[in-house]
């Protein structure tokens, strides 16, 4: 039984509304999904509320969430990064090509080399974005829209649009069951939680994180306070690139291949995760945990279509409508909570 003060903290946290929406959605899905007989062990299994579906959802969400944490940091600083999907593709393709060229390697070496190449490429891309935003004084929307096309183009040309396999030693790590039983792979879920936790600590506890909020809140006042505005701005794009690299590594390893069309259109899901999570597009506001919840929400909506056997043709319409509804309910709930708090 959680103590009342714990419950109060939970209810008061800025994530309360969104978490509530998510839990209600899961509850409804569990009720509506029906159940089936487990072919192996016997007994009934809920069609939604089962380990397999939940971990599958977390795996789907992990890419959005990991990149969403990066996007949240960029958005808090008052910027935007449209190039994360392209960075994902380029980093994955580069890694796969290097590993293919390197030939057979011992598992540890393949893993290390792959990770280094993937993250190295992604961070370099992020650094380029940051340097251009600061150096050219062009709005990041334009810079990253440009690099979005450029980087995907490079990936396309480099790979000749081929799908390149990555060594099975990587897949073994990404799909490791970690003792959970076969066909369950919690590694993406754990990576998502780890990145979110690190992002949350960065934003709420470190000097650099505080500067991100300050710069997004008021650049002029930040400059007048002697903050390293240029360095911080470059930093947020590097972080965003790094997050795309982590997601790309996980993705390529998990699915066993990389192509230049990977993560096509992900940038909007990623930004949506951040903004659904409450990050303000004018800057100064947002949280890593909320971005993760935002990603889970989006993936849940997609999952609902599958679980409830809706006509797949209506997928986009349902996702769009549900997204707007979720945010409206969240905001309404937050307002209600504030009113209740004020009434005390």
């Amino acid at each position: 039984m959680p103590s009342p003060s714990f419950v109060r903290t939970l209810v008061r946290s800025p994530q309360a509304g969104l978490t509530g929406v998510l839990l209600v959605l899961w509850g409804l899905l569990a009720l509506a999904a029906g159940s089936h007989q487990d072919p192996l062990g016997g007994g009934t299994v809920n069609n939604f509320l089962n380990a397999h579906t939940l971990i599958q959802m977390a795996t789907d969400a992990s890419g959005f969430a990991i990149m969403g944490v990066g996007a949240t940091i960029v958005i808090i600083s008052g910027g935007i990064d449209l190039s994360v999907g392209a960075i994902y593709a380029l980093a994955g393709v580069a890694m796969a090509m290097v590993l293919r060229a390197a030939g057979p390697l011992p598992p540890v070496a393949a893993f290390g080399l792959g990770l280094a190449v993937c993250l190295g490429v992604a961070v370099t891309c992020g650094l380029l974005n940051g340097l251009m935003v600061v150096g050219l004084r062009v709005h990041p929307f334009i810079i990253t829209l440009g690099t979005m096309w450029i980087l995907r183009g490079i990936a396309f040309v480099m790979s000749r649009a081929e799908s390149i396999l990555v060594p099975t030693s990587l897949t073994a790590v990404a799909k490791a069951s970690l003792g959970l039983g076969r066909s369950l792979s919690p590694v993406p879920l754990l990576a998502m939680c780890a990145v979110t936790a690190i992002g949350a600590v960065f934003l709420t506890r470190t000097v650099a994180g505080r500067y991100v909020f300050a710069i997004g809140g008021n650049v002029e006042a930040s400059r007048f306070s002697g903050l390293p505005v240029a360095r911080s701005t470059i930093g947020v794009y590097v972080i965003s690139g790094l997050c795309a690299g982590i997601a790309a590594f996980l993705g390529a390893a998990f699915y066993g291949s990389a192509t230049s069309s990977d993560a096509n259109g992900y940038e909007l899901y990623v930004i949506a995760s951040a903004v659904v999570g409450g990050a303000s597009l004018v800057g100064g506001k947002g949280s890593a945990l909320s971005a993760m919840i935002g990603a889970l929400l989006i993936v849940t909506i997609r999952q609902a279509i599958r679980t409830l056997h809706f006509d797949q043709n209506y997928e986009w319409i349902i996702i769009g409508g549900a997204l707007i509804a979720a945010v409206v309910i969240d905001q309404g709930g937050t307002r209600l909570l504030t009113r209740l708090r004020e009434a005390r």
């Binding site: 505080r210 909020f213 008021n218 002029e220 006042a221 002697g226 100064g284």
Partner: peptide
């Protein structure tokens, strides 16, 4: 308002900014 403060931040955070 324009140069002295990040209005959305807490007073503590503004006070320690520099």
């Amino acid at each position: 308002k324009g140069q002295g403060l990040v209005l959305g931040m807490a007073n503590r955070e503004n006070g320690s900014l520099p």
